[in-house]
């Protein structure tokens, strides 16, 4: 099955990167965005080698979000591939009592 990048609400672009940092598939705002792929790979390499986990906790991270004022990138690793989705960020309206 091919990921067409239409499954995520408010999505504006997507990237699928292989283990070596090569772009396997891309679309929308992130179409052929080698720069974003390289920055995200560098970040994941840093996280992988890091000592950031809390002292008593060595479990792996399952998701990275990079959030700007009006959009965000969500990064997950699955089946040895890195999936990146760029989507609009619409903050929930505060509920008035």
């Amino acid at each position: 099955m091919t990921f067409t990048g239409t499954e995520v609400p408010e999505q504006t672009g997507y990237l699928i990167i292989n283990e070596d940092g090569g772009v396997v598939s891309s679309g929308g705002d992130l179409e052929n965005d080698e720069h974003a792929a390289s920055v995200i790979m560098n970040m994941l390499n840093l996280i992988e080698k890091s000592t950031m986990s809390p002292t008593e906790n060595k479990e792996p991270f399952k998701r990275l979000s990079i959030q700007y004022d009006d959009h965000l990138y969500i990064v997950m690793v699955s089946n040895k591939k890195i999936h990146v989705v760029k989507r609009n960020y619409v903050p929930a309206e505060p509920v008035e009592a």
Partner: peptide, 22 residues
């Protein structure tokens, strides 16, 4: 590294790293 993702953005992004317990 994150600042290089969109160097022209006005503000630096907020990063969120999620694991099962933290």
């Amino acid at each position: 590294q994150a600042a290089q993702l969109e160097p022209t953005a006005d503000n630096l992004p907020v990063l969120r790293l999620e694991s099962e317990s933290c």
